[in-house]
């Protein structure tokens, strides 16, 4: 506890970087996964390729991906961009299937009714199908958020400072305090992100609460 209080500023700044490195890929991944999911949902040939293909990306070990990034991107090994892009890959891996599931869960009668009312292509996607898929996508996003918070810490092995640095530091010095503080800070960050996603989802989907109350 004393260690924590003495290093409040350090932990705070590491937490901010950690949050930044976890959240930016989450948003980028969502933005990429939505069109991919849309494509997979409507195209029978692309569907298995996209869903299985992106899913496989998640099986690449994170350490390996972090190390590969500079080679692929030509970035420096300490560039946080490596982490952001690698985690975007993981987020896409987790979310494409979720987006497909969410869009597939839109009842066919609703889709038909929309077509019959002359609600065409893009308008139908953004005003009918995507809004109805929000609850499912949101649950996938919560998994991805927690996954990102946990994977970011591995980047400490490459020397990119964030909460994971507390683990490497504690481990190197055989000193438990920073490790415990790091774990707690990761937990707090996960819980806050989770609550944030739940909150935003509630605002976007007042009809879900109405349904469960009915």
């Amino acid at each position: 506890m004393t260690w924590f209080l003495d290093h409040l500023a350090l932990v705070g700044s590491l937490l901010l970087v950690h949050a930044w490195l976890a959240v930016v890929p989450l948003l980028l991944g969502l933005i990429i996964a939505i069109p991919l999911g849309w494509l997979a949902e409507r195209n029978r040939v692309l569907r298995p390729i996209l869903v299985v293909g992106t899913g496989l990306l998640y099986t690449i070990p994170s350490l390996a991906l972090f190390i590969l990034m500079p080679l692929v991107l030509g970035t420096g090994i300490l560039d946080p961009l490596n982490v952001i892009i690698a985690l975007t890959v993981y987020t896409v891996a987790l979310l494409v299937r979720t987006v497909v599931d969410g869009l597939s869960a839109v009842p066919e009668t609703v889709r038909q009714a929309a077509i019959a009312m002359g609600i065409g292509g893009a308008r139908r996607f953004f005003t009918v199908e995507l809004p109805l898929a929000v609850p499912v996508i949101s649950s996938g996003l919560r998994v991805a958020a927690v996954s990102n918070v946990s994977i970011v810490s591995i980047a400490a092995l490459l020397g990119i400072a964030q909460l994971g640095s507390l683990f490497t530091d504690g481990f190197a010095r055989d000193f438990l305090d920073p490790i415990v503080v790091g774990i707690v800070a990761c937990l707090v960050l996960s819980v806050v992100l989770d609550a944030l996603i739940i909150g935003v989802t509630r605002v976007l989907t007042p009809w879900v609460a109405a349904r469960s109350a009915a």
Binding site: P107, T109, V110, Q112, A113, A114, V128, P131, V134, T205
Partner: peptide, 12 residues
Amino acid sequence: YVIQSGGLFAHR
């Protein structure tokens, strides 16, 4: 156009 079971938009 009226479809079986309404086809209403659940989010509206």
